[in-house]
Design a protein around this nucleic acid. Structure first.
Length: 343
DNA sequence: AGTAAACCTTCTAG
DNA sequence: ACTAGAAGGTTTA
């Protein structure tokens, strides 16, 4: 059926599975557009820039194909993908430190290895997370899809399925009244106005370039800029800072992280009904002092391990040695150096 | 400054 | 079948 696609050969990028787990990273709520391809559990299809990407991996490589056929030299494509996955950042040394500092992290670290931050485009990241407020992943994903279908540009058609770019700021800012109305009709609810207004605000400030420039600002300054936008509060701002603006220590505190913090780290927070500004800051500060400069990355591991649909994900097949005891240590003293093996 | 209610829609536990 | 609650919060009062 997919003769053409199947025949195309994979491009390979050296990358250990312990440094990247596509099945987790692509499905842990950082981005919302990656879907498993043709029911294959280890192949993922999505759009990056103005190209459709098919991704997979083996023990030592990240593998990809792109569509439509590119004349572009594969060196540039390699670099593009390596940047998206931030492969320059080595996870294993970080995991080692985080596990040493935190027994809770240590406990989940072997099963949830290879969880890293994507370096997303701020436009997609920002508008996707405006959709995320008071919402669930399934619906967020379908809203993002609708954003692309109705405002993006079609770039490829395959077996009756169209693939679109994520809309540009201009495409979302063209006619705010119409955009809002259209989004309402698509079931965006009150987020329709947030998107239309933010798009307009960003466009007036210089559009995509303005957002990209936030990467050069210190955390607090970039955050203050984001908070000026409609529909972006502290949590979404930190998501954008962490996921597309290079702020590795940003910690988005959502209802999930609040629960995790209250249950496992800061028991006194159990009294709070909701995440107050004070609690928000306290939780972020706690994890930053615990994990250091890449605290946001560590937070993402905790978050992923807590997601319902990922909680029972299969452990890295590389860890075949398995220690069949699911819960035998009681003292919590981390002196057992179980051979999780590693190269 | 800090707290509470309203906000769109969809899915689910009861 | 029907309803209250929650879902990766933000805005307004």
């Amino acid at each position: 059926m997919d003769v053409v696609l199947a025949k195309m050969s994979w491009k390979l990028i050296p990358c250990l599975r312990s440094e990247l787990r596509l099945d987790i990273v692509l499905k842990c709520g950082q981005s919302f557009r990656w879907k498993s391809f043709n029911d294959q559990p280890d192949q993922w299809i999505g759009v990056l820039g103005s190209r459709v990407w098919l991704l997979s991996q083996d023990q030592d490589h990240l593998k990809y194909k792109t569509f439509p056929k590119a004349e572009e030299d594969s060196g540039a494509l390699d670099a593009f993908l390596a940047d998206y996955f931030q492969l320059k950042v080595k996870l294993q040394p970080l995991y080692k430190v985080w596990a040493k500092e935190d027994p809770v992290f240590e406990k989940i670290s072997s099963k949830f290895s290879g969880v890293r931050m994507l370096r997303q485009h701020p436009v997609e990241n920002l508008f996707s997370f405006i959709c995320s407020s008071n919402n669930n992943i399934q619906r967020i994903s379908s809203m993002v899809e609708n954003l692309c279908i109705h405002f993006g540009t079609e770039i490829w058609k395959h077996e009756g399925v169209s693939y679109h770019t994520f809309p540009s700021v201009e495409q979302l800012a063209k006619n705010p009244m119409n955009v809002e109305k259209k989004l309402r009709g698509l079931g965006f609810g009150y987020r329709a106005a947030y998107i239309a207004k933010s798009a307009k605000q960003i466009a007036e400030n210089g559009g995509e370039e303005y957002l990209l420039k936030l990467r050069t600002l210190p955390y607090q300054e970039a955050r203050d800029e984001l908070l000026k936008l409609t529909g972006i509060g502290p949590k979404v701002a930190d998501c954008v800072l962490l996921m597309s603006l290079d702020q590795t220590a940003a910690i988005p505190v959502d209802t999930h992280m609040f629960q995790i913090a209250a249950n496992k780290y800061l028991p006194h927070l159990k009294g709070y009904k909701s995440v107050t500004d004070k609690a928000y800051k306290e939780i972020g500060d706690h994890f930053r002092s615990l994990y250091g400069d890449y605290a946001g990355w560590a937070h993402s591991v905790l978050f992923s391990a807590d997601l319902k649909h990922l909680r029972d994900i299969e452990s890295d097949t590389d860890t075949r040695v398995e220690s069949k005891s699911k819960e035998s240590k009681s003292s919590g003293s981390p002196m057992l150096k179980k051979r999780k093996k590693r190269a």
